[in-house]
Structure formats: structure tokens, C-alpha cells
Amino acid sequence: MLGRSGSGKSTLLNLVAGLDRPSRGSVQVGGVAVHALSETALAGFRRERIGMVFQFFNLLDDLNVLDNVLLPAQLAGMGREKARTQATGLLDRLGVARHARTYPGLPSGGERQRVAVARALMNRPPLLLADEPTGALDSTSAADVRALLTSLNAEGQTVLLVTHDTALAAACATRTIELVDGRLHSDVRNAPLAVAR
């Protein structure tokens, strides 16, 4: 999803995740009437169906990288061994396994965003929400995260990415929806993406 700052992109993501409620109308995600869920049901919906990646990582500074990634599994009640195996596999796959025992302040910005993606994928959510995931990164790290999101999408992961960066949208979107002042401006299906190797 593409749009300038203030166009409503983050608000729409928050509605999809059930973090905000619509003032009118409804929000349906994967057949679930998100707008009608109780707070407890919304927490369960997010835990089971949504992974979230933010611009500024939102990693917990007092937990090491591995424990940050394990947190969603612990909240979901996943068994300890299964969770650890899955978390270490994700960190390895995303190229940040060497940081498993370090704290979030030590890895680079791009590496911290990869940790955030691992955490978001921990419970294998059907939908990954990414709010300006390259906005705080240098160009090299941004290219790495862009390639990662493109690769995940090519493997079948649904990714709803919001950005104001037209180059990012062009590089990794199979569909581009543009918002202007909180309204749908355009909806374009793009050619299938080539996966960066």
C-alpha cells in the first residue's frame, strides 16, 4: 500500500490488526469480522493470524535476540523445545543466528529488522503486516529487507506492506493500492516479481 505520510496507511494496518476500531463500516480479514471481536478475541486473532513488523523494530531491549523471537510463541503457549527449534531456524534462515545471544542494541539496523521479521513469523501467521519496514534503514539494509519480503511473498507468505517509498512499492509489490487523504486512489496489479537470490 502506497501513500504519503498522513494518507491513512498506518491507520488501515491498525484496523486490519484490530488495534483500532472503525468509526463506521466493517473490517473483514480472512473471513473474520475483526471489528466485531472482543478485546480478548482480538488478542487471540492477532496471536494466531497476524505477524507485525514496524519501522523502528520494537524489539525489547532487556531480552536477547532469541528471547525476542521466542516471545510470541510463549504467549501462544507453544512448547519450549518446538519454539526454540523454530526460533533458531528462523534466525538462521534470515542470516542473524550469530546474534541469538546478543541484545538488540548490538546488531545493525538491517539485522534488527530481520530479527523483527523472525519474531513476526514465529507463530506462522497467514498475514504479515509491515509498516514502513525499511524507513529507518540505510540503502543497503533496506535492499536486504526488500529482498527478504519479496522472497517470503514468493514462497506464499501474504504480506501487506505500507510505505511512502514508490521505489520500494515498485520493487516488491504484486499489487499496489494507493491511498490519498484516507481514500482509495488507485489499485493496480503488478507483474509477478523475480525473487532476489
Rank of each mutant, 00 (worst) to 15 (best):
A130Q: 04
V16G: 04
P192N: 00
A116V: 03
G18W: 04
L179A: 14
A169T: 06
A116Y: 07
L12F: 14
C172I: 13
D181S: 14
S186F: 03
S38N: 01
T158K: 06
F56T: 12
F54Y: 14
L90K: 02
Q28G: 00
N123F: 12
P107D: 10
L12T: 11
N190G: 02
F45I: 00
D62T: 07
M1C: 05
D131M: 09
M1D: 01
E81N: 12
E132T: 05
A33Y: 07
T85W: 11
R124K: 06
F57E: 03
P22M: 09
V159A: 13
R197Y: 13
R114M: 10
D62E: 12
N64Y: 14
V27Q: 09
R189G: 00
L129T: 06
L42C: 12
E132R: 08
P133Q: 04
D131P: 12
Q113L: 08
L63Y: 11
N190P: 00
V69M: 09
D67V: 15
A167T: 12
A97S: 09
V69I: 13
G79L: 15
R24E: 15
R101G: 08
Y103T: 05
L161K: 10
S141M: 06
P22D: 15
S108L: 03
D165P: 00
L152T: 05
V65R: 10
A43K: 11
G105S: 09
P22A: 11
T134P: 00
M122W: 12
T102A: 14
G44M: 07
A43N: 10
D181C: 00
N190I: 02
A116M: 11
